[in-house]
């Protein structure tokens, strides 16, 4: 339907200095109204201190079929995690 308001994705920064996080989406005619609506819909219970809105059509994403090639290689690289290395207790905190 061509007269439907575009879809916006909403990102909110919570209270404790965390990054903005995707919380959902809504329809609005423009960015200003998207922010106003996001404030009403997604921050009624002190959920946020800052809002980002992005029109959904501007978001690019990985394809579900690429999940394997993109993300499986890191599964075999256990040495990237600190717990891979046994350090003697005598060495102290590290």
């Amino acid at each position: 339907m061509k007269n439907e308001w575009p879809l916006w994705e909403i990102f909110i920064r919570g209270q404790h200095g965390m990054s903005h996080r995707h919380v959902g989406s809504l329809h609005a005619p423009d960015a200003e109204m998207a922010i106003k609506n996001a404030r009403d819909v997604y921050t009624r219970r002190n959920e946020g201190v800052s809002i980002w809105v992005v029109e959904a059509r501007h978001i690019s994403a990985t394809a579900p079929g690429d999940k394997g090639p993109l993300f499986e290689p890191s599964e075999s690289k256990v040495y990237r995690h600190p717990t891979f290395f046994d350090i003697p207790e005598e060495v102290g905190a590290m």
């Binding site: 339907m1 439907e4 879809l7 959902g24 989406s25 809504l26 329809h27 009403d40 819909v41 009624r44």
Partner: peptide, 21 residues
């Protein structure tokens, strides 16, 4: 007001399946 919000969350979920609100 919450109920309106709940409707919106759900319409959004339905829209991800390709049906417009």
């Amino acid at each position: 007001q919450d109920e309106a919000g709940h409707g919106l969350y759900l319409y959004s979920a339905a829209e991800t399946l390709g049906e417009s609100r």
